[in-house]
C-alpha cells in the first residue's frame, strides 16, 4: 500500500466523524433557515416551502440591535482584555524565579477550568447589593439598577473569562521574543518605555492579533454571561438564538440568525486579520523609504 493511500485511510475516520456530526448538522441549520415557519408549530413542517423571509426579518431594527450590542461588547471587552493581559503576560514571561512563573501560569490555566456559571454568580455576588464591589455604583454616581451599571458588570464578566485565555496566548509570543532586543534598544539610547513601543510592541502584533481574535470569538458566542449578568437588559445574539429556538420554537428564524452571525463573524475575523497584515506591510515600506 502506498504512503498516500495509507494517509488517506488514516484520515478517513476523522473525516467521516467531521462530516456526519459537524458538517451535516450545520448544513441542516442552513436548510432550516430558508424554510417557511408556521406560528404554533415546533420547527418547520417537513415539506415547508423555501423562503427568504427569515433573513429579511433580521434587517428589522429590533434584530439589528442584538447584533450591534454583541459586536460592541465583543470589541470593547476584547480590547480591554488584551491591554490588561499584555503587561501581566510580560511580567510572567520575564519572571526570573521559575517557581513564581509556574505558580502564575498554573493560576491562569486553573482559571480557564472554572465554570462560566461559577464566574458569573461570583461576580453577581461581588457587584450585588451585599458584595464589596457594590460601592462602585456610588463612586460612579449611577444607580445599581441602571443600564450602565449592568453593562459594566457584563464587561467584567467577559473579562473574567477572557483575561486568563489572552494571558496564556500572549505568554507564548513574549517568551519567543529575544530579551536581548530590549537591551540592545536601551544601549542604543531608547528609554525602557520607548524600547517597548518600538521593539516589543511591533514584534508582538501577531500575538496580540490572535489573542484579540480568540477573545472576540469567545465574546460573540458568550451566552451565560449576558443572560445572568445582563439581567435581560444586555442581550447578545446567542440569547436571541436561544429565544427563537427554545422559547417560541421558531427554528427557521433561529437558524437564520445563527447563520447570519456566523457569516458576519467570519467576515469580521478575516477582515481584521487582513487589515492588520496590510497595515504591517505598509508600515514597513514607510520606514525603509
Amino acid at each position: 500500500m502506498s504512503t498516500t493511500k495509507r494517509t488517506v485511510l488514516l484520515l478517513l475516520p476523522g473525516f467521516a466523524l467531521f462530516l456526519a456530526f459537524l458538517a451535516l448538522p450545520l448544513a441542516n441549520v442552513v436548510d432550516e433557515s430558508f424554510r417557511f415557519f408556521e406560528p404554533g408549530r415546533i420547527g418547520s413542517a417537513k415539506d415547508a416551502p423555501y423562503t427568504l423571509l427569515n433573513y429579511a426579518e433580521i434587517l428589522e431594527p429590533a434584530y439589528l440591535r442584538y447584533f450591534a450590542e454583541t459586536f460592541r461588547f465583543g470589541v470593547l471587552s476584547s480590547l480591554i482584555a488584551i491591554v490588561v493581559s499584555f503587561p501581566i503576560a510580560y511580567s510572567v514571561a520575564r519572571q526570573r524565579s521559575p517557581w513564581l512563573r509556574k505558580l502564575a501560569i498554573g493560576f491562569f490555566v486553573g482559571m480557564m477550568f472554572l465554570s462560566t456559571l461559577v464566574r458569573v454568580y461570583a461576580l453577581q455576588l461581588t457587584f450585588g447589593s451585599t458584595g464589596y464591589a457594590h460601592f462602585l455604583a456610588g463612586v460612579l454616581n449611577v444607580s445599581p439598577n441602571s443600564r450602565f451599571y449592568t453593562e459594566l458588570i457584563v464587561v467584567f464578566g467577559l473579562l473574567h473569562y477572557l483575561i486568563p485565555i489572552s494571558v496564556i496566548t500572549l505568554l507564548g509570543t513574549i517568551q519567543n521574543l529575544n530579551p536581548r532586543l530590549i537591551e540592545a534598544s536601551q544601549v542604543l539610547g531608547a528609554s525602557r518605555l520607548r524600547s517597548h513601543l518600538s521593539i516589543t510592541l511591533p514584534l508582538c502584533v501577531p500575538g496580540l492579533l490572535s489573542a484579540f481574535l480568540i477573545c472576540f470569538t469567545l465574546c460573540l458566542s458568550a451566552f451565560v454571561i449576558p443572560m445572568v449578568l445582563g439581567k435581560g437588559k444586555v442581550l447578545f445574539v446567542s440569547n436571541l438564538i436561544y429565544a427563537r429556538f427554545s422559547e417560541i420554537a421558531d427554528y427557521p428564524s433561529g437558524s437564520a440568525v445563527a447563520i447570519t452571525m456566523l457569516i458576519i463573524a467570519l467576515i469580521a475575523i478575516y477582515g481584521i486579520t487582513w487589515l492588520v497584515a496590510k497595515g504591517f506591510s505598509n508600515q514597513d515600506r514607510g520606514r525603509s523609504s
Partner: peptide
C-alpha cells in the same frame, strides 16, 4: 541607565531588530 550612557554593545547573538531593515 544604559540609555543614559554612550556604550556600543555587540551581543553574542547580535540581537538585530528583526522587523527593521539593515539601514
Amino acid at each position: 541607565r544604559p540609555y543614559e550612557r554612550n556604550v556600543g554593545l555587540l551581543f553574542q547573538d547580535y540581537a538585530l531588530f528583526p522587523h527593521m531593515t539593515v539601514a
